[in-house]
Design a protein around this nucleic acid. Sequence first.
DNA 1: CCACGCATACTTGTATGCAAGAACACAAAT
DNA 2: ATTTGTGTTCTTGCATACAAGTATGCGTGG
Lengths: 258, 258
Amino acid sequence: MIATPLQTPASASVSEEVYRAIRGAILDLTLEPGSTISENALARELGASRTPVREAIQRLERDRLLFVFPQRGTVVAPLDLDEFRSAYFVRSSLECAAAAEAARLAGPADVARLRQHVDAHTAALAVADESTFFALNDAFHLEIMTIAGVPSVWSVVQNAKVHLDRVRIAHLTRASTYPLAPIVEEHRQLVAAIAAGTPDEAAAVMHAHIAKVLHRVDLLRDLRPELFEMPRELTAQIRTISGPAAAGRRLHSNDKSQ
Amino acid sequence: MIATPLQTPASASVSEEVYRAIRGAILDLTLEPGSTISENALARELGASRTPVREAIQRLERDRLLFVFPQRGTVVAPLDLDEFRSAYFVRSSLECAAAAEAARLAGPADVARLRQHVDAHTAALAVADESTFFALNDAFHLEIMTIAGVPSVWSVVQNAKVHLDRVRIAHLTRASTYPLAPIVEEHRQLVAAIAAGTPDEAAAVMHAHIAKVLHRVDLLRDLRPELFEMPRELTAQIRTISGPAAAGRRLHSNDKSQ
DNA sequence: CCACGCATACTTGTATGCAAGAACACAAAT
DNA sequence: ATTTGTGTTCTTGCATACAAGTATGCGTGG
């Protein structure tokens, strides 16, 4: 059961709201990796019709958060090592290049704005909850992209970042708390490198900053290997020709009780 | 008028076919930047219903090839310098990083496969038309991504590359022919750098290889500045409150003759 | 006990109807 | 001549009905 029947605040469009709802449910494991969902069931739950639900599902499929098997079903994408590595590659490459470019282009006003971000982040360290903290984190990284002159690249980074966040969040709910202070400290070093106008240094700091997620995927794989497994029914994407091989289990979760 | 009523060969789904048809029409300027399109008109032309047309339009909007203004209309995205620069940034960063990584990881079998690509490309130089030549070009770049261990990153590059291709194709149809031989030669140098196992050299060669598009956008901007202009009717995305400022011109192309 | 056939209840893909809003055309008033 | 109101027709967003395909459950026959 996903959260609420669409009472989310800034109502842009039903489709957008449904997208955010499902995406959030996937990220916080309300919808577990490998579980099956259905357009009709989601439409009932969210109080919308199939059309906007379907549009959201197609967006999420392009985000690689869902797999749609026509006439068979739709499953939440299991965590995947290759996907994680690709996402890391994209984020690392783009953000390091942006940090270097920002170090080349940044003027005094830009550096001042970066420092404001760091100050706000430091203040949030004490009082804010995690979600707002990470929102500030995203804002800081976006600011660097903006200084580099390519703000719209941030959306590409975000699309990749989801797959890193999935691992981080899943690991977070099971393991210890997340150390937030080092993040702000690394941001401070990043600003220093950008202010100094040293592109290589900025890229190196950014690389170290981002690389800290890398070990989490291995830890999570040990903690909860089932999050990485595709349900056996859908593993055979190439249908065996009436072969009785994949008999036994059922696809539908049979949740009529909803 | 877009090409044919959906007779394209490998019929995956209506939605997919419509997507490819519109995308192709945008790329080859059958649909000119800034022109308005409509779900109903496209559905009639392509012999489909609105649903798959709508799905295709939404994909193309996420590709930034269309702008959808609810209740007002949908326009083909004009060429845009910022979009071009962002796309170049994404492609350059990812492909240079991939080339460097490929230089680190490539084994003899990988190098052999790369050489096969170059040989096939050389052969195509004499006989093949441009579209198959560029298909081989894409295959080569994908192979590098594969060797780097992140094949799925290629889809990200492709999404950005569209905006570079738009400029190249638009410039191609108006200006002289495209010199193809240097491309293959640069690929050869790239393979040499990867075979030598020198990441920095591979990245440098890749950078020079990709950077050749950069000057085209300026040339095209001089040749056909109208391709870069958003129709004035939709420039005001924030509606002036019943202000008669934007009066005069009309939005709808009024092509009832179709 | 096992294999096969069939009915049934699901799935997603597609078509279509309706609603809300925006822009144009035109007539009327100032 | 300019403005203003109004109706028509366009636009996209959403809801819903239908079509095609798939997996399950059960009965039947072996």
